[in-house]
């Protein structure tokens, strides 16, 4: 039941997107978001949409699976559409009681909703095509220059790695405890909000006890292998840019340049 969550999941593969350096993908995603928020007219949106669809195709993942990742934000998009329709000042085209939809609002709403959809669709490719370990490695590398400013790059990355590593474990554990308590007649689905909150106790207590037990075990296991933070630590796999990474970054920069041109030139 809980395992059906697709957001943030990694699907192993060998596509071009899978093989890109995680740093490229992270920086590329940031540039993409930048471009997405700069463009402001139909041609611009069309170009970015085509670009996004090409990325999905390059990921080699099943279309249906990728598109399903967008489903959770459906209501947010709907909300954005409605708010923009009625709250943007401008030429009124349709009235519903005190609510006035404007031409500008419809335009803005559609663009905003479109933007959100593309944002989630494309950034989900980042986690779908990069293993959590690769991602945190990439983040650690990218943060290393800021060490001088007191950013604990290694420790942050290690914390993220551990957190990500335990998400599936905890989900599985939650599933198991829920089932075990349901087998004893527990009810997690009905009742008012107070009853439901109380009903969570048989789930949350064992879950926390288990999480602490695991944390303790993990800390012991790490210490037993002489872990003492990032100082002097080397890596088994060094991240190295390949030609494709430079190309991908160049394309991303071009996309931002295009969006700027789209915005600034008439």
């Amino acid at each position: 039941m809980l395992r059906d969550i697709t957001l943030g999941q990694y699907i192993p593969g060998t596509s071009l997107l899978h093989r890109l350096d995680p740093r490229t993908k992270i920086l590329g995603s940031i540039l993409y978001i930048l471009a997405l928020f700069i463009v402001d007219d139909l041609p611009g949106y069309l170009v970015i949409t085509v670009f996004s669809l090409v990325l999905v195709a390059l990921s080699g993942l099943p279309w249906r699976y990728v598109l399903r990742g967008v489903r959770p934000i459906f209501y947010i998009v709907l909300f954005t559409l409605v708010l923009n329709f009625f709250l943007t000042p401008g030429r009124v085209v349709w009235e519903l009681g005190p609510l006035k939809a404007t031409e500008e609002g419809i335009r803005l709403g559609i663009f905003m909703g479109w933007r959100l959809l593309l944002l989630v669709l494309t950034t989900s490719l980042l986690t779908l095509t990069s293993s959590p370990i690769a991602l945190t490695d990439g983040i650690e590398y990218l943060l290393t220059p800021f060490r001088g400013l007191g950013v604990p790059a290694h420790e942050l990355a290690m914390m993220m790695t551990i957190a990500l590593r335990f998400i599936p474990t905890l989900l599985e554990e939650t599933d198991k405890i829920m089932k075990a308590q349901m087998a004893r007649g527990a009810d997690f689905e009905t009742g008012n909000i107070v009853q439901r909150a109380r009903g969570m106790i048989p789930l949350l207590v064992p879950l926390f006890v288990g999480a602490f037990r695991r944390a303790d075990d993990l800390a012991t296991a790490m210490e037993a292998r002489c872990y003492r933070g990032g100082v002097g630590r080397t890596r088994l796999r060094e991240l190295k840019f390949a030609a494709r990474d430079y190309v991908a970054l160049a394309v991303s920069v071009l996309l931002v340049a295009f969006s700027l041109a789209d915005r600034l030139l008439p």
Binding site: E173, A180, A183, G185, I201, P206
Partner: peptide
């Protein structure tokens, strides 16, 4: 569920 009692693996992890 009352009729069929199910004891999971490591059931002590469900004590609360």
């Amino acid at each position: 569920r009352q009729k069929v009692g199910l004891v999971f693996q490591y059931p002590e992890h469900q004590l609360f």
